[in-house]
């Protein structure tokens, strides 16, 4: 939470700095947001609706939803598992492993895509084997899932880990002396204590999954009604000069983003409160 502080009389210098920052913010962030709304509106409501309910568009949004759900489920479960390991286990090389976990944040999405092609492509290490089983991974749904999962791996662990560390072991030990099993302790004591951090991590995972473009583009053939996600659809229509379709879909994603950001803020405030009331 930002606390408003006020120190005496405001000076001219303060006004100038505030003005400059606000101006910068409006030019950089707010104007573009405004621009896309204006652009979409200029094509009219009918174009907006009809381009959104076209089968290709519906399928693209459905596919994005599917990829998001898969990434969220997998990365939430394993994200919690990994966070518990990093917070509670002690072993050599743990710090190195923690750094490795951050790699998906640092790696370019395009490079991530290339890595997946090398590994799972028709001539790749693992892809070869799948090819012989007649399972296609790259340029097909499994590859896109892998790409989405890869770019969102660290979010949940990164959000939970500091909370788990601060939370410490004592409450869990208390539960075990009171007869609770490891599983009971997790559900009754650990999880309730990290729930807001978890929610924040999940929200970030959702936002990134919905918006992912580069990594998914590289590993998909972007075939309409098959491997075309919402962002890929927008890209294809934009490069085909079908602006009405492109901007309608883009506006939808922007609105979804806006909702997500609001949720993030709400969750974040709760999380901070939880930490400080604790």
């Amino acid at each position: 939470m930002i606390e408003v502080k006020h120190y005496g009389k405001k000076k001219v210098g303060q006004w100038i700095i505030t003005g400059l920052v606000l101006a910068w913010f409006f030019v950089l962030v707010f104007f573009p947001l405004f621009g896309i709304v204006k652009e979409t509106v200029s094509y009219g409501l009918k174009a907006f609706v009809s381009s959104l309910i076209s089968p290709a568009s519906l399928h693209a949004f459905w596919l994005t939803l599917l990829l998001t759900v898969v990434a969220v489920v997998l990365n939430t479960v394993l994200g919690v598992v990994m966070a518990i390991m990093f917070a509670r286990h002690h072993f050599k090389g743990k710090l190195l492993l923690e750094t490795v976990l951050d790699l998906p944040f640092a790696v370019s999405p395009v490079v991530a895509g290339v890595m997946l092609i090398i590994l799972f492509g028709p001539n790749g290490w693992i892809g070869n084997w799948f090819e012989s089983m007649n399972i296609k991974i790259i340029y097909a749904l499994p590859g896109m899932m892998l790409a989405t999962i890869f770019v969102t791996i660290p979010f949940v662990t990164r959000e939970i880990l500091p909370v788990l560390r601060e939370f410490g072991r004592e409450q869990e030990e208390a539960a075990s002396t009171l007869g609770a099993s490891g599983w009971q302790t997790f559900w009754r004591v650990t999880l309730p204590s990290i729930k807001w951090a978890l929610a924040y991590g999940i929200t970030l995972t959702i936002a990134r999954s919905i918006g992912e473009f580069g990594a998914v583009l590289v590993v998909s053939a972007s075939i309409i009604n098959k491997t075309q996600t919402a962002t890929l659809l927008i890209h294809d229509e934009f490069t085909d000069f079908n602006y009405a379709g492109a901007f309608s879909a883009a506006l939808v994603l922007a609105i979804v983003s806006f909702i997500i950001i609001t949720v993030i803020q709400f969750v974040y405030t709760k999380k901070e409160k939880g930490l400080h009331n604790a």
């Binding site: 004592e170 409450q171 030990e173 208390a174 539960a175 004591v189 309730p192 204590s193 009331n277 604790a278």
Partner: peptide, 9 residues
């Protein structure tokens, strides 16, 4: 426990 370790939630 020394620091109580009460379940805060």
């Amino acid at each position: 426990f020394q620091h109580y370790a009460l379940f805060k939630h």
